[in-house]
């Protein structure tokens, strides 16, 4: 395999990882601060994608579409938090799983009702279409580079927000002791709604950006949701740094596994069975990675106690 192809796949893996980070960051914040497992996070990703596709169809502007996705997901997130999620903080995980599973059913069928079953498409803007030449002479998709850039910028912004701002201090304090921070005069209900809406906005942004690469359809959020779970299990629940490292690990393992494993098996068996075995194993690679990490660190790379 040529070095150019390998670099291209590395960049694809990075792009996938960065997108997973946008999902996983929200999930891990919501779990860390509120102790809530939110299966409906994938629905917010889907809502972002649909809001973007709908806005782009109306206005023709990709940038308006991105803004609409952010706002729609944040708004839906805030409303859902105030109407449903808020009642679940004191419940056990089983109730949280069920209630958020119910939300998935409602959101998925509601979206199907509004937009129909046919997939929608979102076009990349002209300025980001086509390839660009990287230093070293490699051609690579401008749009994927854009996703990598936005993802890294948001990751940096989140580290700054959590580590350096007043809101970040409150969020970290909320993780440590919610009664104490409430006693110190922080409006914990408002803080929770804010964190949930922030997580939702990140998921919506991820959905909108991916909407220009993949079809926008009902159920698009669920595979990503489950991958995001794998990411935070690997990284350690509640840790933004863990989510970042985990997302890159999963993104690179999945992308490189799909390219490299069939070739590796091609060395020891004939081409068609190597493709079959390689592809099947590649689809399992990230779960095997997760199981391996759990054997040595049951609470993830950067997690505290389980």
């Amino acid at each position: 395999m040529s070095a150019a192809l390998l670099i291209e796949q590395l960049l694809n893996g990075l792009q996938f990882g960065v997108m997973l980070f946008l999902m996983a960051a929200g999930l891990t914040l919501i779990f860390g601060v509120m102790g809530l497992i939110n299966l409906a996070h994938g629905s917010l990703y889907m809502i972002g994608a649909f809001a973007a596709a709908g806005t782009a169809a109306l206005t023709g502007s990709f940038w308006l579409a991105l803004a609409a996705a952010l706002m729609a997901a944040a708004l839906v997130g805030a409303i859902v938090e105030m109407v449903v999620i808020r009642r679940l903080y004191d419940r056990d995980h089983l109730d949280q799983v069920l209630a958020t599973f119910a939300l998935i059913l409602i959101f998925s069928e509601g979206t199907r009702f509004l937009f129909g079953s046919l997939p929608l498409y979102l076009d990349t803007p002209d300025i980001l279409s086509g390839p660009t030449t990287l230093p070293g002479g490699l051609d690579y998709s401008k749009y994927r580079l854009f996703i990598i850039g936005v993802g890294l910028a948001i990751a940096g912004g989140l580290f700054w927000l959590i580590g350096r701002t007043r809101l970040g201090i409150q969020i970290r304090a909320g993780e440590a002791d919610r009664e104490m921070i409430a006693a110190l005069g922080v409006d914990i209900r408002k803080l929770y709604t804010l964190v949930f809406a922030l997580g939702a906005a990140l998921a919506g942004l991820a959905g909108a950006m991916i909407g220009a690469i993949q079809a926008v359809e009902v159920g698009m959020g669920e595979p990503v949701l489950i991958l995001a779970f794998v990411v935070i299990v690997i990284g350690g629940i509640g840790s933004i740094k863990g989510a970042f490292i985990g997302a890159l690990l999963v993104g690179l393992t999945d992308t490189l596994g799909r390219v490299l494993l069939p070739q590796v098996f091609g060395l020891i068996m004939d081409a068609s069975s190597a493709t079959t075995v390689g592809a099947s194993l590649a689809s399992m690679a990230i779960y095997i990675l997760m199981a391996g990490i759990l054997l040595f660190r049951p609470s993830g790379l950067f997690g505290g106690q389980t």
């Binding site: 779990f31 497992i37 995980h93 799983v97 489950i226 779970f229 794998v230 935070i232 299990v233 629940i237 689809s283 399992m284 779960y287 095997i288 997760m290 199981a291 759990l294 054997l295 049951p298 609470s299 993830g300 389980t306």
Partner: peptide, 18 residues
């Protein structure tokens, strides 16, 4: 079962997906 709580939920989900 080496884990518990929310980890357990996510891990069983992930193995099912695998």
């Amino acid at each position: 079962l080496r884990t518990s709580g929310v980890y357990f939920i996510m891990i069983t989900l992930a193995f099912g997906q695998m």
